[in-house]
């Protein structure tokens, strides 16, 4: 392949990765935006989504049907787990930021260990639900990856619509703006927090389901999406949804291109340098407001 088509392939790979990353990072930044906490176990929700996708696909047998079941059931299971975590742990110390970080690091280890026990140390792949290839003049491209981009785009739009246009979104934004006043106006802040935490986990889990026919499900696969999401939210501004999505595309696409032409490790090192640069010139991130 000559340089032009090679670059096109890298851009396409990067764009698909960027959509998945945007979903994952959106979950992280949404939780931070509303609840002011950082969930270090966010990558593990991604991994759980992938592992449950494998389990459901395995149970059902038929790849297309299995994928349909997984894309609906995995996020529900993971969201349920997130609700339990919220009730049993995070709420007990009232979402105190440092304690939340420490507890979610602990959860990261516990979830990894449980997956290791019940699922094992192997990386396992899931067959893609559809099997056509888009034939370009230079190379064939997996049709499934386009489906991934499509579903992710739909979900990003749905999340935006939900937050900007619905009653539920209004309640969320009110809680984000000032949780005490929201409470005074009768908004059940506790339940909003639980719902937002579950929603963040579900977004990561869907991203995991979507990725598993492309990459294999593996108990340590959560670290990369976590770190990339961290890079994205710091560049975009912690808590800013728009910033997260724009930064996800910048990082996702450049990660794709640099990974194809050089090495994946180099691309993450460069992304971190970019973070350092952003911090030097705009410590609050490109789209982050000043802390109130």
């Amino acid at each position: 392949m000559s340089l032009g088509p090679h670059l096109l392939l890298a851009l396409m790979e990067g764009t698909v990765a960027a959509f998945v990353l945007a979903l994952t990072a959106l979950g992280l930044t949404l939780v931070f935006g509303v609840m002011r906490i950082v969930n270090v176990a966010h990558g593990e929700f991604f991994m759980l989504g992938a592992v449950f996708a494998w389990a459901f696909a395995h149970l059902v047998g038929n790849p297309a049907l299995g994928f349909l079941v997984a894309v609906i059931a995995s996020p529900i299971v993971v969201g349920g787990a997130a609700l339990v975590i919220d009730r049993a742990i995070l709420r007990r110390f009232n979402y105190q930021p440092e304690a939340t970080i420490v507890a979610t690091i602990g959860l990261l280890y516990i979830i990894q260990q449980l997956v290791l026990i019940f699922y094992g140390p192997d990386a396992r792949s899931v067959e893609a639900p559809i099997n056509f290839r888009v034939q370009l003049p230079w190379f064939g491209y997996s049709g499934y990856k386009l489906v991934v981009a499509g579903i992710a785009a739909l979900l990003l739009l749905a999340t935006w619509y939900g937050i900007a246009k619905t009653k539920l979104g209004l309640v969320m934004r009110a809680t984000q703006f000032d949780s005490e006043t929201a409470q005074a106006f009768g908004i059940p802040v506790d339940r909003v927090y639980a719902a937002v935490f579950a929603l963040g986990a579900m977004l990561a889990a869907i991203a995991g389901v979507l990725i598993v026919p492309i990459k294999q499900a593996y108990y340590l696969m959560g670290l990369d999406p976590l770190l990339l999401s961290f890079i994205v939210v710091i560049i975009g501004g912690l808590g800013s949804l728009r910033g997260a999505i724009i930064a996800a595309f910048v990082i996702g696409i450049s990660d794709g291109v640099i990974s194809v032409f050089f090495s994946p490790n180099l691309s993450k090192i460069l992304a971190t340098l970019l973070v350092a640069l952003v911090l030097i010139f705009r410590p609050e991130g490109l789209f982050g407001g000043k802390a109130r």
């Binding site: 420490v102 690091i105 280890y109």
Partner: peptide, 14 residues
């Protein structure tokens, strides 16, 4: 060892 480290962190915070 992961579950020990994980449980220790969660129990300590709680």
């Amino acid at each position: 060892y992961r579950i020990v480290v994980g449980a220790a962190l969660v129990l300590l915070t709680l």
